[in-house]
Nucleic acid binder design. Structure first.
Lengths: 133, 133
DNA sequence: GAAATTGTATTAAGTCATTTGATACAAAGT
DNA sequence: ACTTTGTATCAAATGACTTAATACAATTTC
């Protein structure tokens, strides 16, 4: 019995706007955070994922290294790459992604001199003033 | 009577993480959006701002071109560069910045399979489940 | 009109991160 | 042994960004 494909990336979302290795690691990060990638799941071998994503094994490797540096995955020579079995890394990853995104809007909101809530309201279409009364 | 400095950038916030011209245009965009840069205000000459920011006139020019392409500023040879007098561009710029930031979090939230509100709550520290009752 | 100011255009070069491509080695499984 | 898989290294190509220098064009100022 041959090994069945361990996990397939959900979509072809690699664009040249940002580094490929970053997009790859972010993709896996997200899949892990939302539970579509269960703890302990085996990831595709670097060579295989490289072919699938049309990049060099080196590039996939760079993404894997980054993920392992952050404790999200573990690699074993000859065996493969696996999502960490520690369930806390999932929640940690969720938090990290959430914090990253939210702190981004917070930065923008602050530079524009408004609250995040106001920023969202503004984006959604309501007027901006607040002093219309 | 000599021309007094038209407008001075608020802070030295140029880092190598992103393109310089992008940071410059974003800076002006933000200043315009939050009203610190009034319509019709004259911007520093490319050469002057270049010296002030320690970059090449070319780089400042690239930022100005980008801003003019979006209708936020207008340039006149021999006169200088001015913020558009059209007050609607301010509100449009506000909206654009807000939309950009919010759509970013929306994208992240969606990829994580949650709402923006939940994402913010998660980032702020409360638990994620919601089934804790 | 001459000079200064300011925007615009062009060209060559240099820097840097990213990516490729190739190759070799190391550890685990069969 | 042989295959699979991760790891390491190196040279090269690519491309975006930035610098630097220079010249030209329009407007203001003298």
């Amino acid at each position: 019995m041959t090994l069945d494909p361990p996990w397939q990336p959900p979509a072809w979302s690699l664009d040249p706007s940002r580094p490929l290795y970053e997009q790859i690691s972010r993709l896996i990060r997200t899949e892990l955070a939302c539970g579509r990638l269960a703890p302990g799941t085996r990831l595709p071998p670097v060579r295989e994922l490289a072919v699938h994503l049309r990049v060099t094994p080196n590039t996939v490797m760079r993404a894997y290294v980054e993920l392992e540096r952050d404790g999200l995955i573990q690699t074993f020579r000859g065996q493969g790459t696996f999502v960490s079995r520690d369930p806390s890394v999932v929640t940690a990853s969720r938090r990290a992604l959430a914090r990253e995104a939210v702190s981004y809007v917070e930065r923008i909101a602050e530079s524009m001199g408004m609250s995040v809530e106001a920023l969202i309201r503004l984006a959604k279409g309501e007027d901006e003033g607040g002093d219309s009364a």
